[in-house]
């Protein structure tokens, strides 16, 4: 038997008054394919199924979703890693408004990203070549710049569920630290003063859901800890 039972969250705002779960039987021919492949097979049965996808190799961050209760990227999650007892339940990322099926409105997530001013700020006139940076200084950006904005972390964070308008969330904070840690950035003080309120950073309770789900193996909790250290050093 290589039939996989797929249970899918369905909601089309034009026809459904409420979301519901729909069952599909998918013949995987016993292969250990990716969850995204399964979704494509379902879509051949029901072209109305909506989900986002682009690179299909885990670098664009389009297909973040909740698979058997855990957030991750459908394109790099093999069935062997996620299926339990022959069953796969797929839901949209939790905590964000659903547009249709597995597609969520990521507006709040992006707004929090924009809020931390995710761009290098350096008012010193640039040299004719690149700004120099030692390999050691550059190493500090590893584990930070690789974020793909898939929102798996922020939508697995209860603090973000309760206050998505005020708490920056793990993804945004990881990027905040990416610029705080960059030897070329000159806006450290301004960046920190934007973060010292009780919500932006301090709603993090360190439960590390973000670390557990990050498909790129990044550690937002550690970055948040570093921001706290910088805030403390700056204010005492």
């Amino acid at each position: 038997m290589s039939t996989l039972q797929v249970s899918l969250y369905r909601y089309n705002p034009e026809t459904d008054s409420a979301p519901y779960m729909e069952e599909f039987q998918i013949d995987t021919q016993g292969r250990d394919i990716m969850v995204l492949d399964v979704l494509h097979m379902v879509k051949e049965q029901d072209s109305g199924l909506a989900f986002r996808r682009s690179c299909r190799e885990g670098v664009c961050g389009s297909d973040g979703m909740n698979m058997n209760g855990k957030n991750g990227l459908a394109c790099i999650t093999p069935l062997s890693e996620v299926v339990k007892k022959g069953k796969l339940t797929l839901r949209p990322l939790p905590g964000l408004p659903v547009i249709r099926d597995l597609v969520v409105d990521m507006g709040l997530f992006y707004k929090q990203y924009e809020r931390i001013q995710p761009y290098l700020q350096n008012e010193t006139p640039a040299p004719a070549i690149e700004r120099l940076q030692s390999p050691e200084e550059r190493d500090k950006l590893d584990g930070l710049y690789e974020c793909i904005l898939c929102a798996c972390c922020s939508t697995s964070c209860p603090s973000f569920w309760w206050n998505p308008d005020k708490f920056v969330g793990p993804a945004g904070l990881l990027q905040a630290y990416r610029f705080l840690a960059d030897s070329r950035d000159e806006a450290t003080r301004e960046r920190l003063s934007e973060l010292e309120d009780p919500f932006s950073v301090f709603r993090c309770r360190g439960i590390m859901n973000c670390v557990a789900v990050c498909p790129k193996g990044l550690n937002p909790t550690r970055a948040i800890g570093k921001i706290r250290e910088m805030l403390l050093a700056n204010a005492t």
Binding site: Y119, L120, A126, I129, E130, R131, L132, Q133, P135, R138
Partner: peptide, 23 residues
Amino acid sequence: GPKAVFELEHMGLPFSRFENGRI
């Protein structure tokens, strides 16, 4: 090209570095 690449670096692109700090 070099102008365009240096602009990217000035915008913040995190290039890997040589020991002397260059790209």
